[in-house]
């Protein structure tokens, strides 16, 4: 994570990750789930969304096995980057880990886990459900 992070929008999110809570926001007015964290609702424009905690269960919306990685991640290849739809109605990017990379498919159920990345920051990943 860059030095200027977390920032005022993201602090509650990263503080949550540090205690293994996956936090997202919900709009007070139109009730949509919001991710990434913002100061206003991107749907209705009303301020001050409220923080919620996700159960960390989701479905893979899209996924790719990365073979040619950015320099900082070269040693991790091959690895699976996915967009995960969480049960609470928000989508986030993550990796699917602890799996045969070629077995990961769109539509599979996944559960959040927390690990340190290669810069030492704790971040949320996902594993295949019941794996």
């Amino acid at each position: 994570m860059a030095e200027e992070l977390p920032d005022p929008d993201s602090s509650p999110y990263w503080e949550g990750i540090n205690i293994e809570e996956l936090r997202y926001q919900q709009c007070n007015h139109c009730n949509i789930s919001i991710f990434y964290p913002r100061s206003i609702c991107p749907n209705c424009g009303k301020p001050d969304p409220i923080w919620q905690t996700s159960k960390g269960k989701g479905t893979i919306y899209a996924c790719s096995v990365i073979h040619r990685a950015p320099p900082a991640y070269k040693e991790d290849t091959p690895y699976v980057v996915a967009l995960v739809d969480l049960a609470e109605g928000f989508r986030m990017m993550s990796r699917i880990i602890d799996c045969d990379t070629n077995s990961v498919k769109v539509g599979q159920e996944v559960d959040v886990v927390y690990r340190k990345d290669n810069t030492g920051n704790r971040i949320p990943y996902f594993t295949l459900h019941n794996s």
């Binding site: 860059a2 919306y61 040619r68 993550s94």
Partner: peptide, 26 residues
């Protein structure tokens, strides 16, 4: 790696190809 990108950068998606790969997978 700042602002909205702080929620993507840690996962090592190569940009732009990885993003288009996600769309293709979908």
């Amino acid at each position: 790696s700042d602002l909205g990108y702080q929620y993507e950068t840690p996962y090592g998606l190569p940009i732009p190809v990885g993003a288009y790969a996600l769309a293709a997978s979908r």
